[in-house]
Design a protein around this nucleic acid. Structure first.
Lengths: 125, 125
DNA sequence: CCGTATCCATGCTGATACTG
DNA sequence: CAGTATCAGCATGGATACGG
């Protein structure tokens, strides 16, 4: 019984229901500083850890680790360790992760199209 | 030159470019605790302040104020004061705010469809 | 009715240093 | 190479009290 979709909301919206709403959960998941960028990079091709680190100029090792770990835990990213010396780890989108790209693109298109309207609303000319 | 859309990303992605990426900006905007729920409620009809307060069981007055103020500043919500006694204030979506509902629904559909996969990935059976 | 002001707990983010 | 450990700053969120 999640929100947004056509279904009418209960009134009042109970606390617990909002906590478990998958829509809010996904947005909060993806609304942090680095997740989307990492997902997009992995959507282009698989990357190794330091490859991502170099590809994102200002991310710290710590935040890259945390971001990837979160995505792996949610089943959106696949982590594969190759037992070479030195070790190498490859990250790639899972099938589930790839399905996320489409609705993300829809929101991206909106952002591209209306981003300047928001900016001009904030700083009126 | 935002991310996600078909355009290839620079390598490395410069810090400044990521800061100003409208896609990330929108997701962080909408990725807080209450914004989406408020937008959805206002998408159904205009609400007064205390109407929203009652409609969302566990939101504090402070957070409702902050959420609404942010949306108004971004031009997504319209605030209209009626000089009655006691005063009444009505909030409604602007045309820009209404256009946000559609891409949000796309992400909502994804969340509804795949939310349980994420949940089961987190707690493997 | 519609907020503000204050204080506080928690979490996100980053810098730096270190390890198998 | 691919992380972990520790510490610190700032932002987010909530509780409570007060004001126009």
């Amino acid at each position: 019984m999640p929100f947004i979709v056509g279904t009418p909301l209960p009134n009042p919206v109970p606390a617990e229901e909002h906590e478990r709403c998958p829509v809010t959960a996904v947005l909060r998941r993806v609304g942090d500083k680095w997740t989307v960028l990492v997902v997009v990079l992995l959507g282009q091709r698989a990357h190794r850890f330091n490859e991502l680190h170099r590809a994102i100029e200002d991310i710290s090792q710590r935040m890259l680790t945390r971001t990837l770990r979160g995505l792996v835990e949610d089943g959106l990213v696949h982590r594969e360790v190759f037992p070479t010396v030195p070790p190498s780890v490859q990250y790639s989108l899972t099938p589930l992760g790839r399905t996320l790209l489409e609705p993300l693109s829809a929101l991206a298109s909106w952002a591209v199209e209306h981003g300047d309207e928001i900016a001009s609303a904030r700083r009126p000319t």
